[in-house]
Design a binder for these strands. Structure first.
Length: 567
RNA sequence: GCGCCUGUAGCUCAGUGGAUAGAGCGCAGCCCUGCGGAGGCUGAGGCCGCGGGUUCGAGUCCCGCCGGGCGUGCCA
């Protein structure tokens, strides 16, 4: 099969027939225009959809319907005109023009069946694409202040980010994952002071917590830990010095426990970027100067303001407080300057929690003020997570006393289930995480349903090996049952799912696909005996089973989950 | 008040402007002489919050209202 897209990799071949259909349709539409059958209006993006109704074929094009208005023609007539120029397409058996103007395509069964061999050949690169054409994209996520433990909402963002990183790197993007460590702001100072106060308290010395300090119990635990390890070495120091030193130790401890938890959740980063370094490297001063030169900085009330109203924002924002301390926002501007102009990422994706919503617009405005196209910055907001257990509904709030930490969640729920559940909801939606369902190790739990599918497949392949079957020469054309074809069709959908996730940055399609694939496989399994006395048929079916294993394992792996051989 | 998100089956949620709106759980049934029953099949259950609009076509886009969440600091 010939490749339709620019490939920069070695063994990159596109299996996506959908792309081919779109391309051919566009050409035919142009030809119809040149032949005078359709007025020469500008063509809409050719979108090929998957009809829900099998009577409508495997793919459907709506280009004629979309053209109708501009062309001032009956869409059916347009569709017929385009259809006149449609050449034969490999893999497409037939097409038909249907009222009110759809062009429906039906794939050739024979072609579809042959794709099983194609998948086996591709193995775990099946579904990879060159969509991104090597675009360098930075994915920044989690980036929680190291002032305390992660909560479940952070876990959601972490899973979202790591999954998108997997998908994008499979789709021809060069991806770098980064955690921005806010180790410089006033919140950190506040945390250090709180920790120091607790430390003195642990040692029975007079102490005073900052009024807006961190009152969580974990600070006391941390202080106790430090007191145990370091005894009373900080007692003799002047307060400022002691706070700085003990703060540094606290920061490292919190950070390493954050790292550990994320690792347990299957989330890793190439870069841990220090906010402090923005000041040390001079980028911060540089962007302040730049913004000043461009006339976006104004001093009033003792502070330095970003005059974002000049750029259409509804209010100005403080960059440097009247006490001389830069705001988080100002540091973030320097950080984004660093991302775009010093490290030259083509594209930056930030994943923030819903509580940072108000920051989105001004960040985009600031990027614009630096002369960078805001289109290169994409900010995803992951909404709140609520936990429930039966009737008990607990909201997760940083401010409230009863924080539910990611640690607590992971103590109860295994990683794969956490990941699958977090991924199953679109980032835009607030989610209810049902602990009861998550902990069930039964068919009620979709995670086990999917993984069971994989284990079942592994079991069949294991048995085949034990019985000495060599299916490498199997003839896939023996796969003619409806259940077999349905399974093959589902496998052919996989590259489209990956492309959709890479394009929309909405990974919830993955768990849904995984369930769908598992269901289709189980159905096939019920109807088609794989290992039987018919050696030829067995070999053919083993090929299909192996192809299914490849796709199912990959779907799970992209989601950061295990594909178990046994359960 | 203003900004962002959200409202789809009893519950939790999918649904790239298209043709008859889906899944899981729950509910009512059915299917084990053979590869993993942690399975398969069937059924009931919907004014897609409400009202306008755009469009050949709206769960999807726009406006208004109602309900829920988050934000709205010289916090991050």
């Amino acid at each position: 099969m010939r490749s339709l897209s620019h490939c920069y990799g070695s063994s990159c071949v596109e299996i996506m027939i959908r792309k081919r259909i779109a391309e051919v349709l566009e050409q035919s539409a142009v030809q119809a225009q040149e032949g005078g059958l359709i007025p020469k209006v500008s063509l809409p993006d050719v979108f090929i959809e998957r009809p829900q109704n099998p009577d409508h074929g495997d793919y459907a094009a709506t280009i004629a319907l979309k053209l109708a208005r501009a062309a001032k023609m009956n869409p059916l007539e347009i569709a017929n005109s385009i259809a006149k120029f449609l050449p034969d397409i490999e893999g497409v058996e037939s097409f038909s023009v249907v009222r009110p103007g759809f062009i429906n395509f039906t794939l050739s069964k024979n072609w579809m069946i042959q794709q099983v061999d194609e998948i086996l050949k591709r193995d775990d690169t099946y579904g990879d694409s060159s969509l991104g054409e090597g675009t360098r994209v930075q994915l920044e996520f989690v980036s929680v202040n190291p002032t305390g433990p992660l909560h479940v909402g952070h876990g959601r963002g972490a899973v979202l980010g790591s999954t998108l990183a997997n998908v994008l790197s499979r789709s021809g993007y060069s991806v770098e994952r980064e955690y921005y460590v806010n180790n410089a702001g006033s919140q950190m100072r506040n945390f250090y002071a709180s920790l120091y106060a607790r430390y003195r308290e642990v040692l029975g010395l007079p102490s005073e917590m900052p009024s807006d300090g961190y009152f969580g119990d974990y600070v006391i635990d941390l202080a106790r830990e430090i007191a145990n390890e370091r005894d009373e070495v900080f007692v003799g120091l002047p307060d400022e010095e002691a706070i700085a030193e003990i703060g540094q130790i606290g920061l490292e401890k919190v950070l390493s426990s954050i790292k550990e938890e994320l690792q347990q959740l299957g989330v890793e980063f190439e870069v841990w970027f220090s906010e402090q370094s923005l000041y040390e490297s001079g980028v911060f001063n540089k962007i302040m100067e730049l913004m000043r030169q461009n006339g976006y900085v104004d001093g009033r009330e003792g502070a330095q303001w970003f005059v974002s109203t000049e750029l259409g924002e509804d209010k100005d924002n403080v960059l440097i407080r009247s006490d001389g301390m830069p705001t988080y926002f100002a540091a973030d501007i320097a950080y984004h300057y660093n991302k775009f102009l010093e490290r030259s990422f083509d594209k930056v994706i930030d994943i923030w929690g819903a509580d940072h919503q108000g920051h989105v617009w001004r960040m985009k405005t600031a990027v614009r003020a630096l002369g960078i196209s805001p289109d290169r910055l994409q900010i995803l907001i992951s909404q709140m997570v609520s936990l429930r257990r039966g009737e008990e509904l607990l909201k997760v709030s940083k401010r409230a006393g009863d924080i539910i930490t990611l640690r607590e969640l992971m103590d109860e729920v295994v990683t794969d289930v956490c990941r699958f559940f977090f991924l199953s909801r679109s980032a835009d939606s607030h989610m209810d995480f049902d602990l009861e369902l998550a902990k069930k190790e039964s068919m009620d739990n979709p995670v086990y349903y999917v993984q069971y599918g994989h284990a079942r497949i592994a079991g069949i392949l294991r048995l085949a090996r034990e019985r000495g079957f060599d299916y490498t020469q199997g003839d896939v054309s023996l796969l003619t049952e409806d259940a077999e074809l349905a399974l093959i069709k589902k496998l052919l959908l996989f590259p489209e799912i990956l492309e959709m996730v890479a394009t929309t940055l909405e990974p919830q399609h993955l768990p849904y696909y995984a369930q769908d694939l598992a269901t289709t496989f189980h159905n096939f399994y019920e109807r088609c005996r794989v290992i039987s006395g018919d050696t030829a048929l067995t070999s053919a079916r083993l090929k299909l089973v192996e192809a299914t294993r490849i796709v199912m394992a990959k779907t799970l792996h992209v989601m950061g989950m295990k594909a178990p051989e046994r359960m």
